[in-house]
Amino acid sequence: MTREVADFPEPGVQFKDLTPLLADAAGLCAVTDALAASAAGADLVAGLDARGFLLGAAVATRLGIGVLAVRKGGKLPPPVHSATYQLEYGTATLEIPAEGIDIAGRDVVIIDDVLATGGTLGAAVKLLTASGARVTGAAVVLELTELRGRGAVAPLPVSSLHTV
């Protein structure tokens, strides 16, 4: 229930589109349940921009806990905590609010759609940890194993529902 898009967002990148899976009620429920099982014990979910927002909110609802949207740079009003990282096709920045949400000492699990090179996940771990959270693990729907992204966050436990 996924779609592969060649040369997006740049030539040579094989984009894995999970939109068809998320639009299917049974697929979304199955993914939510599986990700929630991986997130058991957390008291906050951090959903990564943008599909991680959808998945993270669903998982948090299933677990009865809150969700924190980890945004791409420039989308939040200041002040923010931020982390810049490398993508396979450039650089990017993640941000969370510096005020209004206290994550210090909280057990946080990170939810995202795809683990590729590990840059986004690694930056999220650094950002959340620097803000005082205890990142207890991460869960993704799809892991692209040939890109070795898991190594970027070792020894953090990462749960993948599907690997290619």
Rank of each mutant, 00 (worst) to 15 (best):
residue 130 A to K: 09
residue 155 P to E: 08
residue 128 L to K: 06
residue 103 I to P: 13
residue 141 V to L: 12
residue 28 L to Y: 14
residue 7 D to F: 05
residue 70 V to E: 07
residue 149 G to L: 02
residue 42 A to R: 12
residue 77 P to C: 10
residue 39 A to G: 01
residue 4 E to I: 15
residue 113 D to L: 03
residue 36 A to K: 03
residue 121 L to N: 06
residue 30 A to N: 11
residue 98 A to V: 08
residue 30 A to T: 09
residue 18 L to W: 01
residue 78 P to W: 12
residue 138 A to G: 12
residue 113 D to P: 08
residue 134 R to N: 15
residue 54 L to E: 07
residue 48 L to S: 07
residue 137 G to D: 06
residue 77 P to D: 14
residue 122 G to W: 10
residue 94 L to N: 10
residue 106 R to V: 03
residue 109 V to W: 05
residue 116 A to N: 09
residue 84 T to G: 01
residue 34 A to F: 02
residue 89 Y to Q: 00
residue 73 G to E: 08
residue 16 K to F: 15
residue 88 E to M: 07
residue 60 A to C: 08
residue 146 E to T: 10
residue 120 T to A: 03
residue 60 A to P: 11
residue 43 D to T: 07
residue 72 K to T: 05
residue 49 D to T: 05
residue 149 G to H: 01
residue 66 G to W: 11
residue 72 K to Q: 10
residue 100 G to F: 05
residue 11 P to V: 03
residue 132 G to Q: 05
residue 128 L to C: 04
residue 100 G to W: 01
residue 11 P to Q: 02
residue 75 K to Q: 13
residue 12 G to E: 09
residue 143 E to N: 11
residue 120 T to S: 09
residue 12 G to M: 06
residue 119 G to K: 11
residue 89 Y to R: 00
residue 67 V to K: 01
residue 141 V to H: 12
residue 86 Q to G: 04
residue 99 E to S: 10
residue 69 A to N: 13
residue 77 P to V: 14
residue 114 V to P: 14
residue 164 V to H: 12
residue 48 L to T: 08
residue 140 V to Y: 09
residue 73 G to W: 12
residue 35 L to R: 03
residue 5 V to R: 03
residue 137 G to W: 03
residue 104 A to L: 02
residue 36 A to F: 06
residue 137 G to N: 00
residue 17 D to L: 09
residue 108 V to H: 10
residue 77 P to G: 09
residue 138 A to N: 01
residue 120 T to I: 01
residue 6 A to Y: 06
residue 114 V to R: 12
residue 121 L to P: 02
residue 153 V to H: 11
residue 155 P to S: 08
residue 137 G to E: 00
residue 9 P to D: 06
residue 44 L to P: 02
residue 65 I to N: 11
residue 29 C to R: 15
residue 81 H to S: 13
residue 151 G to Y: 11
residue 128 L to N: 06
residue 152 A to M: 13
residue 61 T to N: 13
residue 11 P to G: 07
residue 145 T to A: 08
residue 76 L to T: 04
residue 49 D to R: 11
residue 103 I to V: 12
residue 124 A to F: 12
residue 62 R to I: 08
residue 4 E to H: 15
residue 72 K to N: 06
residue 111 I to S: 06
residue 53 F to K: 13
residue 80 V to G: 01
residue 87 L to E: 02
residue 77 P to R: 15
residue 124 A to G: 10
residue 53 F to C: 09
residue 17 D to R: 09
residue 104 A to S: 10
residue 7 D to G: 00
residue 49 D to Y: 03
residue 116 A to V: 07
residue 162 H to I: 09
residue 143 E to R: 03
residue 100 G to S: 02
residue 42 A to T: 15
residue 153 V to Y: 10
residue 59 V to T: 14
residue 127 L to H: 10
residue 32 T to K: 05
residue 121 L to D: 04
residue 126 K to S: 14
residue 7 D to Q: 04
residue 97 P to Y: 07
residue 140 V to Q: 10
residue 115 L to Y: 00
residue 126 K to T: 15
residue 50 A to L: 14
residue 161 L to Y: 11
residue 31 V to C: 05
residue 101 I to G: 00
residue 164 V to W: 14
residue 44 L to T: 02
residue 159 S to W: 10
residue 149 G to Y: 02
residue 19 T to E: 04
